[in-house]
């Protein structure tokens, strides 16, 4: 039955995609209904998505590879914790650790989810291998276990309240990581960060320096099959990081330039000469040549508390140590 269904959706996939987008937007709005309802709505989504993911998986091996690699660490965590279904709401499965003794299959038996099932089986193989090899030398360390106390539900709610409720639509396909220019060369794993934001793992997210590897190029967001506003997620997570004091000195400096001059990149002497040479005003008609305008910018920064946020002393006009 599932094969027929897959073929059907393969050929008729386009129509479903259109429908999918609609149901996607509606389904996860009910955040606080009980988990059964949630599950069924998520199931519906995955089922509908199967059609288009079939072709992708069979033609491009790349995302799968990265999925495996990326998830091996996570996978170990999960087996130990609860074998949480990777498609389900993470925070929830984390909190019901003890009630879920049966690991594999439990939540993935729905016959229509063959594609997902395949992927999960593959992952399990990987981690079983590791278990065999490493009975006495497991790679799992105590601090890798996700415990209920590291889950901060308010953190997840921040995204919802900011209009980025699409964070809840993510089903961890990895399309984002597959297209990410920074993900190819740094430890930045956008798929994982989105997951952690949904799970409420605030401390992990905001203290991770790789959070700052995103160039905001939007490739992930453009390609996301679930229309998750990924760049917005990153920016809000960074806002929270900055609030908690995780801000690079170079970024504090950029911030200070705006308070000091109104420009993130202020003019220099060489450019003043160049401007005059080509017949432009030596200073551009911006805050650079308008003291009142610069005062406005400073007043705005004061009103929003930006000076305090970056540790800028308005009196000395310098960043504080």
């Amino acid at each position: 039955m599932s094969l027929i269904k897959r073929l059907k959706s393969l050929f008729g996939g386009d129509n479903k995609d259109v429908i999918k987008n609609k149901s996607v937007k509606e389904a996860p709005v009910n955040i606080d209904i009980d988990s059964k309802d949630k599950r069924s709505s998520t199931d519906k989504i995955t089922e509908e998505k199967t059609g288009s993911s079939v072709t992708k998986n069979s033609t491009t091996p790349k995302p799968k590879e990265s999925t495996k690699k990326e998830s091996s660490k996570k996978e170990i965590k999960k087996q130990e914790v609860s074998e949480a279904d990777p498609v389900k709401e993470g925070s929830e499965s984390v909190e019901v650790i003890d009630e879920k003794p049966t690991p594999k299959g439990d939540s993935i038996k729905k016959d229509s989810e063959d594609e997902i099932e395949l992927a999960v089986e593959e992952k399990n193989e990987v981690s079983e291998e590791k278990d065999e090899k490493g009975d006495n030398m497991t790679l799992l360390e105590e601090n890798m276990v996700i415990k209920p106390e590291s889950v901060n539900r308010e953190f997840t709610q921040l995204f919802v309240d900011a209009g980025i409720d699409s964070v809840e639509h993510c089903f961890q396909c990895g399309t984002c990581s597959g297209g990410c220019p920074s993900g190819r060369r740094t430890p930045y794993k956008i798929r994982q960060i989105v997951r952690k934001c949904l799970m409420g793992l605030k401390d992990e997210v905001i203290s991770d320096p790789s959070l700052w590897m995103c160039t905001t190029c939007y490739t992930c967001q453009e390609r996301c099959p679930r229309s998750v506003k990924i760049v917005e997620i990153i920016k809000l997570a960074r806002n929270e990081a900055v609030k908690a004091g995780f801000m690079a000195p170079a970024h504090r400096a950029t911030g200070s330039f705006v308070i000091k001059t109104g420009h993130g990149v202020p003019i220099n002497d060489a450019t003043k000469i160049l401007r005059k040479k080509v017949g432009l005003s030596e200073l551009p008609p911006t805050t650079h040549s308008d003291a009142k305008a610069l005062e406005d910018i400073r007043a705005i920064c004061k009103a929003t508390g930006f000076d305090k946020l970056i540790g800028y002393n308005m009196e000395t006009n310098e960043l504080m140590e």
């Binding site: 905001t216 990153i234 970024h251 993130g264 946020l309």
Partner: peptide, 9 residues
């Protein structure tokens, strides 16, 4: 850059 630091600002 600034969007990453503080949305309100």
């Amino acid at each position: 850059v600034f969007g990453s630091f503080d949305k309100k600002t």
